[in-house]
């Protein structure tokens, strides 16, 4: 279910390392909790983020949730497709529903995050 090549946070974001850049999105668990997503508040390219700082927010019919940057870095791009089709996050949370691409500052921060197996275990803990 959860791809092995991603890193995961307790707040249900994922990060994928691509060279010096990190692609960030929210997990399948997060999109299911939110339900139908209708609006994504995206950051401007050039914005510098610390790890755990809010990147933006994702709104569903039911609720709104902040998205936190799993790692420190500078926003290179935001997924502009989400402005027209925010439900890409529901349909393909770990792929086309990505939210931002960051120029990563310190790759060692990835060590603070969970691998897929750990994240799945973490979710099991939440569901009980």
């Amino acid at each position: 279910m959860y791809p092995d090549n991603l890193y995961y946070t307790k707040d249900h974001e994922w990060v994928k390392l691509e060279g010096d850049e990190a692609v960030v999105g929210i997990t399948d668990f997060a999109q299911k909790q939110l339900g139908d997503i209708i609006y994504v508040d995206l950051p401007q390219p050039g914005k510098v983020l610390e790890a755990r700082q809010a990147i933006g927010s994702v709104e569903s019919v039911k609720s709104v949730s902040d998205v936190y940057s799993p790692v420190s870095g500078e926003v290179v791009a935001a997924n502009s497709e989400l402005a027209q089709t925010p439900d890409l996050i529901n349909k393909d949370p770990h792929g086309q529903g990505w939210i931002v691409r960051l120029k990563i500052k310190d790759k060692s921060e990835l060590n603070n995050l969970m691998k897929a197996a750990d994240y799945e275990k973490y979710l099991e803990g939440l569901e009980h």
């Binding site: 339900g35 139908d36 209708i38 569903s60 019919v61 039911k62 529901n90």
Partner: peptide, 9 residues
């Protein structure tokens, strides 16, 4: 039940 298929549908 809060939703089955999704609120919008």
């Amino acid at each position: 039940p809060v939703e089955y298929k999704g609120i919008i549908d």
